[in-house]
Nucleic acid binder design. Structure first.
Lengths: 208, 208
DNA sequence: TAATAACATGACAGGCTTGTCATATGAGGT
DNA sequence: ACCTCATATGACAAGCCTGTCATGTTATTA
């Protein structure tokens, strides 16, 4: 948590620091990003930084919170209202919302991507837990769809949930090209749809 | 490449260094592993290390080569002789051979895992290229199976290949428990089989 | 045995980072 | 004008790591 001093800062200065951090964490991993770089770009003295944040972790968590909140804005609706939709279509929707978020806020998605690519203690703190929560929710939804006959009952729900987590958390970002966001958007949407088509067919009730 | 001096070393000393490196690279990532740790465990002076290897990269590449060669031993047969087998069954076979390798040489698979989890420049050098080679081979095989009617023709071959790469390179290791290798083995084989069942059905020709 | 080549050794310089602290500056209230 | 509290500042200590090098030590060969 940033200090009160940081929160009291005038907006311009605060944003200078936040922007510098976002730009750097988007370019490099957590370890590769040095406080020295951040203060150089944000044009604040070293001493000030430590008056605003306890340490690098403190800053990173603060920035990641901003990213997370923004991503939630895109998914909130879907996540609070998924009763009347099949699991696969829920995943489709979330995926597409994620893609929209990614192209609207490429730097934010780069930050997330850097975190996912680097499974250190920060990853453990910020992601690991959430993934297992997601997995559990997915398993429940999959089981419901099994009852409804949308998914074969001989599928292993946990395995299926993990396939989804695995595929959704990684593949999309590879296509993100900062210089051509519109093309990236279309590519990602297309790819997601193709992946989920295969999966959907793979788990659907066999027609005998 | 290690120096001639290193290769001239008596076996005991050479193995002490190799073992120390393997143990450390299995426990920690490349960046987290310090030369100081290696020489402490191998019980050689700092100066000697630099008489054997140019730097940390040099040692790492050497160790990784050992790992790669060992893994190849397990897959060689399948990889040189995959004409009369469907793509999905090839993947099944390779996957199961990978699992055998993993349980026979848990430290080696940990080294690979640490590399896959940390996408830095070492990853780029050692893995990235191979993945795209694998992808290309997969695409060819997928297309052949499409001709044979084993895989639906409306599947996007590249997408399918990537799904396979993605799933096979990541999921298995999560189950590896060094304290119970037999159980791990069974779990991994089981999981792989379940994943590939879903995928196989997902891409197979629809029966109308 | 003497000379030469191969190998061993650890102190040390150099580079980079983080976090601290004593001091300076400014803003608001009385 | 003065005092006080909040904020600003950058030099610096301390830590850590890498790679080098001058100097021993051992092996080999003539």
């Amino acid at each position: 948590m940033p200090t009160q001093t940081f929160l009291n800062l005038d907006k311009e200065k605060r944003n200078r620091i936040i922007d510098a951090a976002i730009n750097l964490f988007a370019e490099r991993t957590y370890e590769q990003t040095m406080i020295s770089d951040i203060i150089k770009i944000a044009k604040i003295p070293r001493g000030s930084f430590y008056q605003y944040f306890e340490d690098k972790d403190d800053l990173y968590f603060y920035i990641f919170d901003i990213v997370k909140l923004k991503k939630m804005e895109y998914m909130k609706n879907t996540l609070t209202n998924y009763e009347n939709i099949s699991f696969i279509n829920l995943v489709r929707k979330l995926y597409n919302e994620g893609v929209k978020f990614a192209t609207d806020h490429p730097k934010y998605i780069k930050i997330i991507d850097n975190l996912l690519r680097n499974k250190n203690y920060i990853y453990d703190k910020l992601i690991k837990n959430n993934i297992s929560i997601a997995e559990n929710i997915y398993v429940d939804l999959i089981k419901k769809d099994m009852e409804k006959g949308l998914i074969r009952k001989d599928i292993d729900a946990i395995t299926f949930a993990r396939i989804i987590v695995q595929l959704t958390s990684n593949i999309a970002v590879e296509e993100l090209d900062l210089d051509n966001l519109e093309l990236s958007y279309n590519k990602m949407i297309d790819k997601n749809s193709k992946i989920l088509d295969i999966i959907e067919y793979g788990v659907s009730e066999r027609i005998n």
